[in-house]
Design a binder for these strands. Structure first.
Lengths: 236, 236
DNA sequence: ACCTGAACACCGTTCAAGT
DNA sequence: ACCTGAACACCGTTCAAGT
């Protein structure tokens, strides 16, 4: 039976960049962005900080590698599928949506990462998987760049914000479920100043009913409609 | 002439939450997100950390207040204007776009802030200014929430990513201008693997030519088209 | 009520020394 | 080539003490 303890201190495999990044992802997932420290990492890997710095330049690079790994997995095309382009774009969008929901730290990291290095591989990877479907959609070539950029920006932005909202709902403690959390926000919106917030008050009820994924998809579809509608590719 | 030195150590006005937030914004603008430390803040305000903690609970609250102040200014409706709703939405979008371009730290903070407190005033403020125009656009009531959310998500997401890109261009050092930076990214994209990145390679040239604001606006217009096209408000 | 400033726990990173 | 672990500079935050 010799049950393995969850976190045995002995380290059999030697350290590697791969193992370090893996541990970083686990740490990010389990304790959040603030929980990824070199102290926690050295403990988990049963080593010292110097050993980590031998494989990784600094914390930023480590976060970059963690982000790239998770994103690569998320946007990977499922081998069998050859859906219509619209469906493929929805699939890529949901792939990222779910990845961010599963790894909430991705949201922050993606915006940080896209900024730090468009020369890195994260942006091209996402851009490519969306762009291929835009092309397949029959968008004229001079509209490819604008269409793909708009989709990518929306998907990353919206997925990040939905994930952030979901994270609150999760961290409320055992007594509060998602429904009652949305209720409280909805109620707060309904009590805003009637002059300054007439619109927000009017839709406060929708907040309670809305489905995150459905709403995320609605945005993707707005853009798809805009992209494929006649004349949409004209500039200016 | 008794010229006032830029940063005299004597502090005439007494400390206040307002002055602290103001100094935080200045610090964020001038030295970036990493530059906002309580050390730097105490020096600038000629005081001790305890004094700041008397007015502000912690660093998170300080960042929240800085964000809210700048956003409020950005989305404020210009009194004279009564443009068509489409133009108003473009104006709100550009207001946020420019605010983020001017205060790059806003991008990170907005996603952090929207997440931490939809009960706060940042989200409703943006939501309201966009939503009023959506209503004026004649979108049927059951589509208001989805349309406004999609626009808000796109605007915040895309503006943040454009600003991040712009920030790189800015930080390249005196020798490198924006044009040659885009050239280098464009060249890197053109050299990606032809099988894995056929689309990205094909549009690499567009990267060099593209105008950030124009492209940002194109995305807004895609969504506006999607929102106002027949049947767009039908759910799932 | 408002401010001072030393002190605390913790962080990322370095580096001489080991194998 | 790869790892150890003490040490360094810096961070956010606290709190007894002053006015």
């Amino acid at each position: 039976m010799a049950a393995r303890t969850g976190r045995s201190p002995r380290r059999t495999e030697s350290l590697s960049r791969e193992r370090i990044v893996e541990a970083a992802v686990e740490l990010l997932d389990s304790v959040g962005e603030g929980g990824l420290t070199f102290r926690a990492l050295t403990e988990r890997l049963a080593t010292g900080p110097g050993a980590i710095y031998w494989h990784v330049a600094n914390k930023g690079e480590l976060l970059g590698a963690a982000t790239e790994g998770v994103v690569a997995e998320a946007v990977a095309v499922k081998p069998g599928s050859a859906d219509a382009p619209r469906e493929e774009i929805r699939a890529v969008a949901f792939g990222l949506f779910d990845a961010i929901a599963e790894h909430p730290w991705l949201a922050t990291q993606l915006s940080a990462q896209l900024s730090r290095s468009p020369l890195g591989m994260v942006t091209p990877r996402i851009f490519e998987s969306i762009g291929r479907q835009v092309r397949a959609l029959g968008v004229p070539e001079d509209g490819w760049f604008a269409a793909t950029s708009a989709l990518m920006h929306y998907i990353l932005g919206a997925a990040g914000q939905h994930a952030a909202n979901a994270a609150i709902g999760r961290d409320l403690g055992p007594g509060v479920d998602r429904g009652s959390y949305l209720d409280s926000v909805s109620t707060a919106w309904a009590q805003l100043d009637p002059d300054e917030y007439s619109f927000t008050r009017a839709v406060a009820g929708r907040l309670r009913e809305h489905d995150d994924r459905e709403q995320f998809l609605a945005g993707v579809d707005f853009i798809l409609t805009g992209i494929t509608s006649r004349g949409a590719t004209a500039t200016g």
